[in-house]
Amino acid sequence: MEYHQEEMDELIASLPKEKAFLAPSLCLYQNFWFPVTPQPKTGTTWLKALVFSIVNRHRFNPSNTPLLASNPHELVPFLEFTLYANNAKPNLDDFPKPRIFSTHLPYSCLPESMKRSNCQVIYISHNPLDTVVSSWHFFKSLVQSENQPERSMEEHFETFCQGITGFGPFWDHTVGYWNESLEKPHKVLFLKYEDLKEDVVAQVKKVAEFVGLPFSLGEEKEGVAQEIAETCSLRKLKDLEVNKTGKFMPNFENRSYFRKGEVGDWVNYLSPPMVACLRRIMEEKMSPFGLEFKTC
Rank of each mutant, 00 (worst) to 15 (best):
Q144K: 15
P273K: 06
E74G: 05
W46C: 03
K285S: 09
P98G: 14
S113V: 04
Q30W: 02
G261Q: 13
L278I: 07
F34D: 01
L196W: 15
F139W: 05
L75W: 06
S102C: 06
E220P: 03
I54T: 08
V133G: 03
M153V: 12
V36L: 08
I164C: 04
Y3V: 14
A23P: 02
V55G: 14
V36W: 04
E253K: 09
K140A: 15
K140R: 15
V275G: 02
E262A: 10
E194I: 15
P16I: 07
Q120I: 00
E112R: 04
C119A: 00
H126M: 08
R116A: 01
R235P: 11
N147G: 13
P169K: 11
R255P: 03
V200L: 12
E220D: 11
F210P: 05
I281L: 15
S145E: 14
T45L: 01
P66C: 15
H104Y: 08
P214L: 13
S117K: 01
S216K: 04
E283S: 15
C296F: 02
Q39D: 13
S117F: 00
G163T: 02
F210K: 11
K41F: 03
W178Y: 12
V242W: 12
C232W: 14
K236Q: 14
R280H: 00
V51E: 09
K97V: 15
W171V: 06
K285H: 10
S271L: 10
E112L: 07
K285A: 11
E80C: 14
F78C: 13
F210V: 11
V76K: 02
S135Q: 11
R259Q: 10
Y29G: 07
K140C: 15
V188I: 08
E284M: 11
N118S: 08
L240M: 13
M286C: 12
S135W: 09
L83E: 04
R59P: 06
E146I: 12
T131N: 01
N91K: 06
G168K: 11
L15S: 05
E219Q: 07
E155P: 05
V55S: 13
G212L: 09
P96S: 15
E150R: 12
Q226C: 10
P66T: 08
L278V: 03
L28G: 07
Y257A: 08
L15P: 05
M153I: 14
R235T: 14
V175T: 11
Y257D: 01
N127L: 04
F60R: 02
N118D: 09
F52Q: 00
E262G: 01
E74H: 06
K115W: 05
L11K: 10
L189A: 12
V267S: 07
T82Y: 13
A88E: 06
R279Q: 13
T245P: 08
S135K: 07
I164G: 02
S216C: 04
P273C: 03
H173G: 00
F157V: 03
Q5L: 08
P250V: 02
A208H: 12
G176H: 02
V175H: 05
S141K: 10
K187E: 03
S113P: 08
N127D: 01
S134F: 04
P35E: 14
G246K: 06
